Simulated scan of single mutants.
Amino acid sequence: MRRIKIGPGQLVIRQGDITTLAVDCIVNAANSRLAGGGGVDGAIHRAAGLQRLQQACQAIIAQRGRLETGQAVLTPGFDLPAPFIIHTVGPVWRGGDHGEPELLRQCHHTSLALAREHGLERIAFPAISCGAYGYPVDLAVPVALDAVSHGLFTGLAAEVHMVLRDQAAFVAWAAHADRIL
């Protein structure tokens, strides 16, 4: 685990299972229908209680329609240690010439802004879009860390955890953080 002070806040880069963290909210790398799926999205749905979380997500979709890439919404955390989940839709990697960096930055910013709006100060993010959506880790890390650092520096959050599932991802994120922070 690495802790880095940024402005009045703190960035924590850690390896682990995001569904086990007792923070104010965790961020879900969701699909546009909030339907659950594989990877971190499926793990969060299962750990939170599949039926209740799906009902909450379906109610949001019924009210507002599908989420666009970069948007974020809030649901209860149900059975998670974190009382809330912020669902954001990350960009699908299409070579980098289709606005992917700005959309990834927007995912982090809108999630942090939504957390702040609800008074949630300790937030855990997964590596948004780096799984099934194919965003290369070495290109995602600087974008995500820049957005999160800006959020910490401007007071959108007090503590942000970047939670990486495996050792290789943790090493990559920690190395990038050492270079750019």
Rank of each mutant, 00 (worst) to 15 (best):
P8G: 15
R14C: 14
G16A: 07
T20C: 03
V27I: 11
N28K: 05
N28W: 01
A29Y: 05
N31T: 01
S32L: 03
G38M: 00
D41G: 00
G42T: 02
H45S: 07
R46I: 06
Q54W: 05
Q55K: 12
Q55T: 12
A56Q: 01
A59S: 13
I60L: 13
I61S: 05
R66M: 13
L67V: 08
L67P: 07
A72M: 10
P81M: 13
P81G: 11
F84R: 11
F84K: 10
I85Y: 02
P91D: 05
R94P: 03
G95N: 06
D97T: 14
G99W: 09
G99T: 10
G99Y: 08
P101V: 09
P101S: 07
L103E: 11
R105G: 10
Q106K: 15
H108C: 15
S111W: 07
L112V: 08
E117N: 12
R122I: 11
A127W: 02
S129D: 08
G134V: 02
Y135H: 02
Y135A: 04
A140Y: 00
A140R: 00
A144R: 00
A144I: 00
A147M: 09
A147G: 06
V148C: 06
S149P: 03
G151R: 03
A158T: 14
H161W: 12
V163N: 09
R165S: 10
R165Y: 14
A168V: 11
A175R: 15
H176G: 15
H176F: 13
A177R: 04
R179C: 12
R179H: 12
L181V: 13
